[in-house]
Amino acid sequence: MPQILKVGMADLNIAFCPDILTTIGLGSCVGITLYDKVNKIGGLAHIMLPSSKDIKNNSNKAKFADTAIEILLEIMTEKGADKKHIVCKLAGGAQMFALKNGPSSNMLNIGPRNVAAAKSVLEKLKMPIVAEDTGGNFGRTIELYTETGELLVKTIGHGVKII
């Protein structure tokens, strides 16, 4: 029986075939999955903010797109994954609330900024993004199957899909 490993907010973890990595209720946060399709090792990071460089209190490396991806890749390669076999998928990065008037809060569009940051970090590391389900104004729950590399995306009222 495959085990289901939960990844919390501002957290990351890895799993081996046939286990499943999941993170629940992604809003503006982004779920970044790395998957070594040859060694069947998966990694999942649930990031909240684009960059650790903008913030003083940045000790939790899993909170930021830049540091979380680096750490996740490091842990995966330590455990036998090979970077050249790794493909990436992204989900989340929604804008949960859109204020019609009133001051435009920089924080409200943090979702798209998180997605952009994740993409630029992955590009720098030369890891290809093979699928994404990002943006919109709704939450997502994701499950990464380390047996196939498939990513299941569940929503409330916006369907279920596999990317």
Binding site: M9, G25, G27, F97, G102, T141
Partner: peptide
């Protein structure tokens, strides 16, 4: 401001204050 409503997963809704406190 005028408030804005969303009905969705608790995690997704709560990510909004969590990010700001974050």
């Amino acid at each position: 401001s005028i408030p804005c409503l969303a009905i969705d997963m608790a995690g997704a809704i709560l990510s909004v204050p969590a990010v700001e406190f974050g």
